[in-house]
């Protein structure tokens, strides 16, 4: 299992997440795309952390980052979904391109 294979998987996941975020209208779907991208980033963090570049051996920093990213992703998901719920109550829709009342 080479580092490049792992990173490739992460890159594919990231692109899929990006595609999902770009093409979806539904806010919940967009959030799912964001989660995909975050997961891809996490894989990258672990992989690079494990890479023994410069002969220094594995570092714990990358793993720590993942811990915090997961924590913050949970917080972000909770707040985002609360907002989505609130918007749905007010406007009756969760489609991102219809939420334009801030535009004017």
């Amino acid at each position: 299992m080479s580092a490049q294979a792992v990173l490739t998987v992460a890159a594919v996941l990231f692109s899929l997440g990006l595609y999902c975020v770009i093409t979806r209208r539904n806010a919940v779907s967009i959030l799912m795309g964001v989660e995909l991208m975050l997961n891809a980033a996490n894989i990258n963090l672990v992989a690079f952390s494990n890479l023994s570049l410069g002969g220094q051996g594995p570092k714990v920093e990358g793993h720590m980052f993942v811990v915090f990213v997961v924590l913050l992703a949970a917080a972000e998901a909770a707040v985002a979904l609360a907002i989505i719920l609130s918007i749905f109550r007010r406007m009756g829709t969760v489609e991102a391109d219809r939420m334009t009342s801030l535009k004017e």
């Binding site: 770009i22 093409t23 991102a96 391109d97 801030l102």
Partner: peptide, 8 residues
């Protein structure tokens, strides 16, 4: 536009 996707 205010549309998320365009910014992305």
């Amino acid at each position: 536009t205010g549309r998320l996707q365009d910014y992305l």
